[in-house]
Design a protein around this nucleic acid. Structure first.
Lengths: 121, 121
DNA sequence: CACCCGTATCGACGAGTGTCAACATAGACA
DNA sequence: TGTCTATGTTGACACTCGTCGATACGGGTG
């Protein structure tokens, strides 16, 4: 349940505070960078995953129990499936505390997302 | 070839200078907003599309002829297919000038993308 | 007009994705 | 130990997606 078995953590987490890829307008994306960025976007390209992610991100501390966010109109296994995808993409981390499992937004991701969506024009 | 037949232009272009959706950390995303945002992310969730988009975005004026960007390792019909997807997602616009077709990055998208990717963790 | 070049569309194929019901696993508690 | 609750995993299904070759369209140029 910890994240130790996650094979690859793409994008935004390479060092600690620097994004993996140059700005998209700075020049042609290398195939490798394109692959990493696409993986991140892909993880966010499903409405259910987006709602799960926003529910977690908008919780105090950027963390939430599965039981608090599971109401998105799909079955429980499907919720679990989507949370796994987000975790494998490096956007979430998970931690079991007693009976419940808590998901947290990976640190550097929040700011990047907020900046994208809060941007005026 | 003009964009007049595009059925829906999602995200980031509703008014002119305001994004369609609230910041992801501001609260739970509504199902409708999640759908719109997911459509945008989906358009960017393919490495080939990402490279095409970055090639156009990094060209002077944010515009490029297809012939200048077509070298991404896939066949010409596939390039055309991906450019259409980006256009249908509202991320690009296209215009025919004589023999060649030019694609431009939709205005508000550039800044948002750059902000996301240029952000320091 | 005929020809060539740049780009879009069509049809088909294999691979991947979202979803569910059924089952498995892990803690809490009696 | 046994049972209940919360979550993850498995297997199957329909559907979508990325890709290509073949073909069509549109505009120069001869």
């Amino acid at each position: 349940m910890s994240n130790s078995e996650v094979v690859e953590l793409p994008v935004l987490q390479d060092g600690d505070a620097a994004p993996c890829c140059p700005p998209i307008t700075a020049g042609e994306l290398s195939p490798a960078d394109a692959e990493k960025m696409a993986a991140m976007f892909k993880a966010l390209s499903d409405p259910v995953r987006l709602r799960l992610f926003s529910k977690i991100a908008s919780h105090p501390g950027g963390e939430a129990c599965v039981c608090d966010i599971a109401d998105v109109g799909v079955s429980q296994p499907t919720v679990s499936h989507h949370l796994r995808k987000l975790r494998e993409a490096g956007l979430l981390t998970s931690e079991r505390r007693g009976t419940w499992v808590y998901y947290q937004v990976a640190p550097s991701v929040v700011a990047a997302m907020a900046a994208l969506l809060d941007l005026r024009g």
